[in-house]
Each structure stands twice: as C-alpha cells, then as structure tokens.
Amino acid sequence: MFAQLLSDVGSLWAKYGTVYLTGIANTLILAVTATLIGCIIGFLCGILQTIPYGPNDHFIKRFLLKLIRIILRAYVEIFRGTPMILQAVFIYYGMPYFFGISFKDIWTVSIIVVSINTGAYMAESVRGGIMSIDPGQFEGAKAIGMNHWQTMLYVILPQTLRNIMPQIGNNYIINVKDTSVMFIIGFSDFFAVHKMVSGAVFKYFPSAFMEMIGYLCLTLLASFLLRKMEKKLAGKSNYELVNTDQLVMAAGTYSYPAEAGTPFDEISKDYKGEKK
C-alpha cells in the first residue's frame, strides 16, 4: 500500500514537479511579502495610535488624532472580523465598481489583500507589545528630548519587535497556509496546483500527501528561522569590559580622589580642547 503511494507520488513528481515547485515559490513569495508589509502596517498603526495629546493642545490637533484613532480602530475591526476570501472578492471585483480601477496583475491584488489583512492583526499585536513596555522607557526618551517618532523608532518599537516576534511567526505561518484562499481570484499558489493536477490525473490522495509534506516543510523552516532571529534579537548574554581603548584608559574602577579631580584629566583636556 505504502509502496503504491510512493510510486504514485513519484510519477506525479516526475510529471508535475516543476509545477508544484512554482506553486511553493508563489506561496512563499506571497506569504513573506505580505507578512513584511503587514508588519510595517502594524507598526505604523502602533506609532499613530500612541501619539500623545493633552488638554493644552490645539483642538484641531486633538480632533485629527482622535479621528486617526477611530479610523485605525475601524480598519482593525473590519479586516479582522471578515473572512480573507471575501476581502479578496470585495477588493478584486469591487474596485472596478467604485473607482474604475481594475487589476491586471493578480500578484498586486493578492499582496494587497493579504497585507492589509495581516496588518489588521499585526496592529493589535503591536499595540499589545507597546502596552507591555515599561512607561519609564517613554519617559527616559522624552527626558533627553526625543519626540514621539524618535522615541518610537529608536526605543519602543525595537523592544516591541522583540516581544512580539512569536506573534509575527504566528502570522507568517497562518499566511503560508491561508494564502490558499486567494485561488478565488485566480492566484496559483501551492494549493491551487493540487486542484489543477489532481483534476487532470485524478490522483487526489498522492497529491494531497505531497501538499501536506510541502506545507509542513515550509512552516517548519519558518519556525526554525524565527527562533534564530529571536535569539539574535535577544543579544549577547555576556559583555566584555573595555580597558584597552585609548579613550577609555581608566582602569575600570570607580573611586577617584575627591579633590584631585578625575584620573581622566588627559581625556578631559583633549575633549574640552576639541570643543569650540
């Protein structure tokens, strides 16, 4: 029985191998691109949603910021609360109705649909990630004069990214599998290949078997890579004391005599000298 399955799979692969591989490549490219764009959308939503405003601000600024929050809220609720397969239909067939735009390229439309769908989920993940950051981090950044964008970009979001890495992984893996619904508008991903091939040669199970293995490989590979990235983001677990750098010639001890100034006067002079 197993031998039969293997020989069927073998013959399918011999005949349609490249078709399957193209399907895998399409799925992979769509999932990776859409997850990346989705992340960017999510982080942008995170930055926009957290712009602070107070009672002292101009009322137009307050109004605009409130409006932004309402729009983002609506975006998240709508795209999280409806099936992606319907969103694809709405955007693909709806755009010509409302705006007279028709998509010639199925890739563009697929990437747009999956990206904004992912973005809606990511926006919530990022929001959660930002909430988990100690408010002291915001205050520390503000206190040295950073504005909201700088605070977010250099301090908060890098820490958020690290915290939500597992959720980005989740989204990516979901995307690898769920991009299969894009067949509704004619995107030929890995699963669409199965339908095409099995329809032509009537070998449903061997083809499905290959699909299972293929999808599993894609997601396992993703999990592995994400773990690696998480480790990298966590940084080194130890550090080296720097006692050799010329600028840092101090021996690494803290105490210095109170009246004699610092033992680093050489450097002080050098530094003060360079400053106008």
């Binding site: 550090y239 004391l241 720097v242 006692n243 600028l247 840092v248 101090a250 021996a251 690494g252 001890t253 803290y254 105490s255 210095y256 610092t262 680093f264 450097i267």
Partner: peptide
C-alpha cells in the same frame, strides 16, 4: 569616564 562607567 566621569561617572566611572567607561569600562562597561
């Protein structure tokens, strides 16, 4: 250097 933290 001034605060004695340069090695770190």
């Amino acid at each position: 250097n001034k605060v004695g933290m340069a090695p770190y």
